[in-house]
Each structure stands twice: as C-alpha cells, then as structure tokens.
Design a protein around this nucleic acid. Sequence first.
RNA 1: GGGCCCGUAGCCUAGCCAGGAUAGGGCGCUGGCCUUCUAAGCCAGAUGUCGCAGGUUCGAGUCCUGCCGGGCCCGCCA
Length: 635
Amino acid sequence: MVLLIDPWDTLKKSIAEVLETSFKSNNWSKPDKDFSFYVEEPPDSKLGDLSSTIAFKTAKILKTKPMNIASKILADYRLKPNKLIERVEVAAPGYLNFYIKWSEYSKLVLDSILKEGDHYGDSDIGSGRKVIVEHTSANPTKPIHLGTMRCAVLGDITARLLRKTGYNVEVQNYMDDLGRQVAVLAWGYEKLSGEIEKKPEYKDDYWLGLIYTAAAQRIEENPGLEEVIKHILKKMEEGGNEYANLVQKLVYMVVNGHLETAARMNIFYDLLIWEKDIVRSGLFKEALNKMLKSPHVYRIEEGEDANCIVIDMSPLGEPYTSLKKSYKILVRSDGVSTYTGKDIAFQMWKFGLAEADLKFRVFGVQRNGRVLMETAQEGKASKNFGYADKVVNVIGYEQVLPQQVVYQALKIMGYEEAYRNSYHLSFQWVWLPEQVAFSGRKGTWIGFHADAVLDKALQLALAEVEKRNPDMEPELKRRIAEVIASGAVKFYLAKYSPEKKIVIEWKEAINFEGDSAPYIQYTVVRINSILAKADRIGEPDYTLLTDETEIDIIRTLSKFPSIIREAAETYQYHLIPHYCLSLANKFNIFYHKLPVLKAENEALKAARLNLIKAVAQTLKIGLIELIGIDIPVKM
RNA sequence: GGGCCCGUAGCCUAGCCAGGAUAGGGCGCUGGCCUUCUAAGCCAGAUGUCGCAGGUUCGAGUCCUGCCGGGCCCGCCA
C-alpha cells in the first residue's frame, strides 16, 4: 500500500475546517464553493503562512462588513484551536491570516518525507488505470530537431508524472513509413547517396537527413520527378518489392537514430507503431464499419463531395457549424481514407474500441534495460497494447482543430467515455534564431538537430568539468559532462509553459547557471557531499529549526505532493521544473546562512542533516524520476 | 470571413483556469562574499505604462468587450 501523504493539503483542509465550523455555528449561509477554495497563500509569510479572503467574498450575502466576519471567525477559532496552527490574526480590511505551528508541522513533514523515501509524492489518482501517451512521432526522414525534442520531452514528463500518480502508462511513438516524404528519401538514397558521401562521424539519421533535404530540393526544382515519386509510393503501398524493402531499411536506420538521440535525454518508449501495419491490419475498415452505425456518419450521394464518407460535426454546434463544410471527409471518393479518418480509427484502437489484426514483436532493448516493441506483420497478437482508459496525444498546436475533430467524432459515435478521456497536449514549436522555422525540406534543421545541440552542450560541459576537476580521470569527466549537458538541454525544453513559443537562444539552451538543470544537480551534489561527511545522524530535534531559511525549506518540501497532483491533473508539466528550482534555491540560501556539520549542538545538527537529506531526496524525485535528468556524482 | 494561442524590465520567463495585501525568477548590468559543509553558489543594487482602450468589482497582470502586434488553423494534404 502506497502512503499518500500530502502535508500541505492536510494543512489547508484543517483551515477550511476552521472556516466551515464558524460558518455553521453562526448559521451563515454557505458560500458557493468548497471552503478549501477560500484558503490561499498570502504574498509574504509575514502576513501568515496561509490566509483567507472569505470575509470579502461573503460580506455582501451576510450583509456585514468583512472585518466583522473575520473577527467572528477568529473568535470562534479560539474556542476550538487546531494543533497545527500557532495563531490566527485579522488584518484590515478583512483578511484572516493563519500562522503555522512549525514545532508540530516540521516534524510531521520531515518524518513523513524520510519515511516515504522515493515514494514521497506518490498518489493513486490513476488507481492503476491504463493511459497511453503518444509522443515524438517524427517523420522518419531526418534526425530529431529541437522542436520534435520538445514534443518528446513533454511526452516523457507526462508519462513519468502519470506513473507517479498511479497510472499504468504505455508510451507510443507513431511512425509514418508510408508517406510521400519517405518516398522522397528512398529516391534520394538511390540517386544521391554517391554524391552525398557518408562520413564516418555521421549518424545514419543525419546522413539520410542530408540526402532527404537534397532530394526534396531536387524534386522541387524538377517537377517531372513527381511521377517517379508517385511510382515509388505505389510500390510502397503494394509491399513485398524492392522499394518497399528499401524504405523499410531506411526508415529503420532513421528511427534507430531517433531512439539513440532520445535515449541521450533519458527518453524511452514501449511501442513503435508503423503506419504500414495499421493500414494492413484492417483497423480502418473495422473502425469505419463501427462509425457507419452512427447516423452522423454517411456517404454523400451528390455534389462535389459525391461518394465520400463523411462525419457530420454540426450536432456539436460552434465552431464546426462555421467551418466551410460542417462535415469532415473520412473516406475520399477514390475509397482511400483521409488522415482524419485514420486518426479516428487509431484513437478508437487506443481505447480498445476497434481491435484490428495488429501484431507485435520485439524491436530491441533500450539503454534503460526495457524492451521496446514494434508492430509487425510477422509478430504475434497481444492484448497488452491498447485498451487504454485514457489517452494523451502530444502533438503540435497547429493540430488543435484536427485533434478536436477526432475526439468529438468519438462523442458523436456514442463513445462518451473515450471522448472525455482523450487529451491533446498541444505545444508551440521551437524556432530557430531570427524566427526561422524548422524545415526538413529547406534543411534549416542542419546544425540545430538535437544531436548537434547535445554535442555542443557536451563540449561546453566538458570544458567546465575540466576547469573544476583537472585531476579527474577522463572517462569520469566525460560521463559527468554528458549528464550535465543533456540535463541542461532537456530542462530548457521542459521549463517553459507549452503554449509559449521558444526561439532558440544558445545562451539559454546550453545554460549551466541560474534557472537550469545544472543548478539543481549542483545543489544535490552539494548536499550529498555534506551528508557524506556526517558519520551518523543522531536524535533530531525539529523544534530547533526556527530560522526563516529552514522554515522556508520545510514549507516548500511539504508542497511537493500538491504540486505533483496539480501538474498531473492540469497537464501543466512545467510546474515540476519550477518547483525544483525553487526548492534548490531555498536550500542554497540556507546553506550560505547556517552551518550543518558545525551546528551549535547535536540535536540541531541532526535536525539539519535530516532537513537537507529530505531536500536531496525530493530534488532527486523531481529531477531524476519526474523530469528524467540524472545527477552526477561530483561536479 | 470564422476560430485558437502568445504579448509581463534590454532579453527570457512564472503568476492568468478558480480576481485579493509591496507583480516572483533567470540572463545581462553595478557592487560585495571562498584560510569555515563544492563560488555551476550566495548577498545588495539599478531596470516594469503587466500590448492599448474601455467595462465589471470594495479590489484587475488575472474576468468581460473592442482594438493593436506576432504565430497558427479552417483541404477528397499528412
């Protein structure tokens, strides 16, 4: 049984109780919302640790001045004090300020954290339900660039956070191996691989990316080549021929490159899904038959869209009724499904609403020791994949409407539950300096693909490690530099709110100071170094932790479970990086002010040792477990 | 034409969903702190019409309306 301790929430609830008790005993009419809604944090801890503005909000209904209401609540509180609250004050023009009894609360917080260990912050919100997180899903024609990497990072943190909150998580990476782009790559490989030489230092995905970009440009200049591409596409669809085999080979080369890059950032997957297998599995046909049972899915008989099968979105009202056509085409007049159609079918499969004849086999073992599976016609059927209770698709913001269409389609077809449990985690793309967009075709990715950024970061990190630890053995230096470099880049992509566009700035992307992963890593390394010097921790007396820097740490520590829950429930994953920064900062302030090993007495020393141990432990959960950034042994 | 997202100091950003007390960080800048637990750190300082204009409210960065600037979406493309 997982312990579910949330000290901050406990505190807020007990204050809500104070409010509720007073309202009841005065026979005041209840406010609109739950009492805990009226418990907030004052801007400055001098004004209390928690406060309430309930007196303002109910003044009108109760026909009394806020000051009177607040005073009455205070008087009622005094009749029935709470053991976690030191005192309550009323401040003009009607604030209620609550001061925590730190001698009690600190012990509660630190005891629970040390007892729970790595499980601090765990919850059972998911109660074992299955969630599928799809992310990355990059075109397999070039290496992953920073934009795609942002998608991967957001998806990775989503998966980690959902695991922490009690979900059974399956991470999928969807690969379009039938699209025009791979046909272009195949053509380029045939015609240009002599011209664009593979140098030994090139990774496969980088080399093929160069070929793809050159090929795309060549084809753009020679419209006549379009026919050749069409021919390749046809062969690919037929399968079992030279082109189909070539494409498979190339796509595997690229995807292996993607996986290697992702692994550098501690990002791993459970299942690779090939579009080719989806198409051949009969999934779409099966799903379409189910869709056609809905009165809102039908074939158009006349007009410009004659012979198309469409889904009528008009029952949903705005914004669909104001589209040019209030329906979406699922099957073209030539019988081929559209992207939207396929996407609806795929989403149905994720929820187990269409089973399809999908087969699976082992793709390989990842660096973290976990097996990666892939769909394959030669594989075996399995019920381990799909059948999700909840689906999170991490996809760019430009697909907001298409994704909405997919989810709404589920609703229209009567899959209300699936509709409600579908979430599109959208994010803005990463832009190159000078606001240039990433483009595979134009080759703007060259030099800004994730590997290049990581390599550049590694170089800089190595120089820093060298400067600080000249005598360290080279292999260790390199390992430490790698952890610092990849951590810095991953953190950079994780710390911004997803709807914010990122324009790459080298100084920010490869930053080892300030709001960065190395700042947090350094903090943990620092704590570990102190802990290593302490032979044994005696009997702590937490009531001695009275300095504001100590109190501030305990306060922040105690909020961790609440932050995790909020991040997971509202999909605001950047809350985690920000929390880690804030906790690290609070420790560093304390560190510069007060001694640990040379504390005035043994009981205080033990209390401080446990305090910093709790900080290190919490930062490790945040950084390693939730963001997927390792911490070096030394810095 | 309809819709979505962003606009907070020279630069980057949190806070906006659930309105509250002097708008938090970081980079850069100025000045301090390593014979004392790792200076990738800490302290002090300067820098703000929270895009603009109205409105709602006892109270607006936060809610509503209109506008401006930037990005995006509205296909028998994916």
